[in-house]
């Protein structure tokens, strides 16, 4: 099939997104959740007008496409996502561009931080003892089964205690 000439193609925008999640999430699970969220927020008709589609997603960074005049709606859909397959997640739009290349170069490449340093260290912070499961720059996720910690995590519906290097009082 012959592709449409450029003047007849629909206008599109590309959102560079960053997802903060408890554990790694896959592109297909995120795609299903975006689909779900859009369907719930705007219905089938509105979702089709929004034209949301995930182009790529890896290691917490990705590109999402939407219709050119539906950027705010697309942002709203992404903002309503709180969990993917039971894993808590928050999505932030780093920037919007007119091409995949521009979105990647402007908002994703320079911004990737090294998301490494996963070691199980016994840690004490704010009166809670637990194991550090992940550290990104100054932010640390702690796995704890303290009575107090469990209650706090239940109230937040999360799996880890969120702390920072500034909170640590004791390290073993």
């Amino acid at each position: 099939m012959k592709p449409l000439p450029p003047t007849l193609r629909e206008r599109r925008r590309y959102l560079a997104i960053e997802a903060y999640s408890e554990d790694a999430i896959s592109q297909s699970d995120l795609a299903a959740e975006i689909w779900n969220a859009a369907g719930s927020l705007f219905g089938d008709k509105g979702s089709s007008e929004c034209g949301l589609r995930i182009i790529s997603f890896k290691g917490g960074h990705g590109i999402v496409r939407c219709s050119g005049d539906m950027v705010r709606e697309a942002r709203a859909v992404l903002a309503t996502i709180t969990a993917v397959k039971g894993t808590r997640v928050g999505i932030m739009v780093r920037g919007v561009a007119g091409t995949i290349r521009a979105a990647t170069e402007k908002y994703i490449l320079g911004d990737i931080e090294l998301r490494a340093e996963t070691g199980e260290k016994e840690i004490r912070c704010s009166g809670i003892t637990g194991k550090a499961v992940r550290r990104v720059v100054d932010e640390i996720d702690i796995l704890s089964d303290d009575q107090n910690a469990v209650q706090m995590m239940n109230r937040s519906s999360t799996r880890y205690i969120g702390a920072t290097v500034f909170d640590i009082t004791d390290r073993r």
Partner: peptide, 19 residues
């Protein structure tokens, strides 16, 4: 927000308020 996963960037807040 009840956890850092619930925080939303200002533009996202504006998009939700648009609803």
């Amino acid at each position: 927000a009840r956890s850092h996963y619930d925080l939303r960037a200002p533009r996202e807040m504006a998009a939700l308020a648009m609803l």
